[in-house]
Simulated assay, not measured.
Amino acid sequence: MPKFRVLKGHDAWVVYEAIIEADCAEHAEEFAYADRHASEIWTATGDIREFDHCEVFENEIELVEDDETVEEIKTIAVTGPQRDLILAALRLWQHTAIIPEEIHDIAVNDRGRTLLGSEIDNLCEAINQ
């Protein structure tokens, strides 16, 4: 029997935060509403909250090979220093000739291979955006 890749979407909020100087919480809320489109005061927290509406994207269904699977995409929120350490570790990986076996096993994680140099470059670019 044929297999098909089917996509769906959920309504969601991307959560942002701002530090607002105010006399009280109510005034901070008023200022937040007044400045809700001022992007320079808002910082994405990495928190995404889905809610009830769900829709299958009918025009994006495609036939796939029998052995094709869906690889989970993991989204994480990191601070600036955490991002910098991830980038440094990726670059160190690229430039290290001998990787200890226990570290290599973490990177491979039953997939059979690690990322290639160009894939690491692309990942670092994506992290930097």
Results as ranks from 00 to 15, higher is better:
residue 40 E to N: 10
residue 105 D to Y: 00
residue 78 V to E: 06
residue 93 W to K: 10
residue 102 E to G: 00
residue 109 N to P: 01
residue 88 A to E: 12
residue 29 E to M: 09
residue 36 R to I: 11
residue 91 R to Y: 06
residue 25 A to T: 09
residue 54 C to Y: 00
residue 76 I to R: 01
residue 85 L to E: 12
residue 69 T to E: 15
residue 32 A to Q: 12
residue 88 A to I: 05
residue 54 C to S: 07
residue 49 R to N: 07
residue 99 I to S: 01
residue 69 T to Y: 01
residue 44 A to M: 09
residue 91 R to C: 00
residue 76 I to S: 03
residue 83 R to P: 00
residue 76 I to G: 04
residue 117 G to W: 00
residue 45 T to I: 02
residue 88 A to G: 06
residue 84 D to V: 05
residue 98 I to N: 04
residue 26 E to M: 03
residue 97 A to N: 07
residue 106 I to Y: 09
residue 48 I to H: 07
residue 75 T to S: 09
residue 53 H to G: 01
residue 64 V to P: 02
residue 38 A to Q: 13
residue 34 A to P: 06
residue 83 R to V: 01
residue 115 L to P: 04
residue 61 I to F: 02
residue 60 E to T: 01
residue 30 E to F: 04
residue 51 F to H: 13
residue 47 D to Y: 15
residue 78 V to R: 05
residue 49 R to C: 08
residue 84 D to S: 14
residue 68 E to Y: 06
residue 69 T to S: 02
residue 79 T to V: 08
residue 75 T to N: 04
residue 55 E to R: 13
residue 51 F to V: 00
residue 115 L to F: 06
residue 45 T to P: 04
residue 48 I to Y: 06
residue 41 I to H: 12
residue 85 L to M: 14
residue 28 A to L: 04
residue 81 P to V: 10
residue 52 D to N: 12
residue 92 L to I: 08
residue 103 I to D: 01
residue 36 R to C: 11
residue 72 E to D: 11
residue 112 G to E: 10
residue 62 E to D: 07
residue 30 E to D: 11
residue 113 R to W: 03
residue 40 E to G: 02
residue 100 P to C: 03
residue 35 D to Y: 01
residue 95 H to Y: 14
residue 81 P to F: 09
residue 110 D to P: 06
residue 90 L to V: 07
residue 33 Y to K: 09
residue 65 E to W: 04
residue 110 D to R: 14
residue 82 Q to F: 02
residue 62 E to S: 15
residue 79 T to H: 08
residue 69 T to M: 05
residue 67 D to F: 15
residue 92 L to D: 11
residue 72 E to T: 14
residue 53 H to I: 13
residue 50 E to A: 12
residue 111 R to H: 09
residue 25 A to Y: 07
residue 42 W to C: 06
residue 79 T to W: 11
residue 78 V to A: 15
residue 34 A to Y: 11
residue 112 G to P: 01
residue 49 R to V: 15
residue 63 L to Q: 10
residue 93 W to G: 10
residue 34 A to K: 12
residue 90 L to M: 13
residue 109 N to G: 04
residue 75 T to A: 08
residue 29 E to A: 08
residue 95 H to Q: 13
residue 68 E to M: 13
residue 77 A to F: 03
residue 35 D to G: 01
residue 41 I to N: 02
residue 73 I to H: 03
residue 108 V to C: 06
residue 86 I to F: 12
residue 68 E to Q: 15
residue 55 E to W: 12
residue 109 N to Q: 05
residue 87 L to D: 12
residue 75 T to Q: 09
residue 89 A to K: 04
residue 58 E to A: 15
residue 55 E to H: 10
residue 55 E to A: 08
residue 64 V to M: 14
residue 49 R to D: 08
residue 28 A to I: 04
residue 84 D to P: 02
residue 115 L to I: 01
residue 73 I to T: 14
residue 100 P to T: 06
residue 96 T to Q: 09
residue 76 I to W: 05
residue 99 I to Q: 06
residue 32 A to V: 11
residue 54 C to V: 12
residue 45 T to K: 04
residue 84 D to Y: 00
residue 75 T to Y: 09
residue 69 T to D: 14
residue 112 G to Y: 03
residue 31 F to V: 13
residue 91 R to P: 03
residue 93 W to Y: 15
residue 65 E to V: 03
residue 105 D to K: 15
residue 32 A to F: 10
residue 71 E to K: 01
residue 58 E to F: 00
residue 62 E to Y: 09
residue 83 R to W: 02
residue 103 I to S: 08
residue 44 A to G: 09
